[in-house]
């Protein structure tokens, strides 16, 4: 039979067959998924498979900073992560600052814009806050 006609009967184009030599091999290597095919180990079409997620998940946790007993007389930094540019986010920190001024006037607040963008670190700012005796930080906003 003409090769092109044969491929057409199989539903394959000559191009696909030419550029995908591994496909046929992969499919043939795993015949037991075909309906009615027997499985690898348990009979009755039953199969055992491996868990694709990790069986034990590990994560390192760093210690959280001790909390303040009171905010009175403390300096709280309001740090903008610069998500999407400061013009899009800064307003919410200004409103938080106004809230503290109206509701907890004994709290001093300082607004800072983090360098870079929301996915970059800014060690210089953390150092600056520590050197200026910042007592706490509120970081935002994500979107």
């Amino acid at each position: 039979m003409d090769r092109r006609k044969m491929l057409a009967l199989l539903g394959l184009s000559p191009v696909l067959a030419a550029v995908s030599p591994t496909f046929a091999r992969t499919a043939a290597a795993f015949p037991e998924d075909a309906p009615g095919a027997s499985s690898c180990d348990s009979g009755n079409g039953a199969v055992s498979v491996l868990n694709p997620a990790i069986t034990t998940k590990f994560a390192e946790r760093v210690p959280l900073a001790p909390r303040l007993s009171t905010l009175d007389g403390k300096t709280i930094y309001l740090v903008d992560t610069d998500w999407g540019g400061m013009q899009q986010n800064n307003g919410i920190l200004e409103e938080i600052q106004k809230w503290f001024a109206q509701n907890m006037p004994a709290v001093k607040t300082v607004i800072k814009i983090k360098a870079g963008n929301f996915v970059t670190d800014d060690p210089g700012l953390w150092k600056e806050i520590a050197q200026n005796h910042g007592d706490g930080v509120i970081i935002g906003v994500a979107g």
Binding site: A46, V47, L50, T56, A59, E60, R61, P63, L64
Partner: peptide, 21 residues
């Protein structure tokens, strides 16, 4: 939460089945 530590969670058994495809 004031300590450095490693946490772990189970994501289930290492294998599933036997069962039908």
């Amino acid at each position: 939460d004031q300590t450095t530590r490693t946490i772990s969670q189970s994501a289930g058994p290492g294998t599933f089945g036997p069962d039908t495809a």
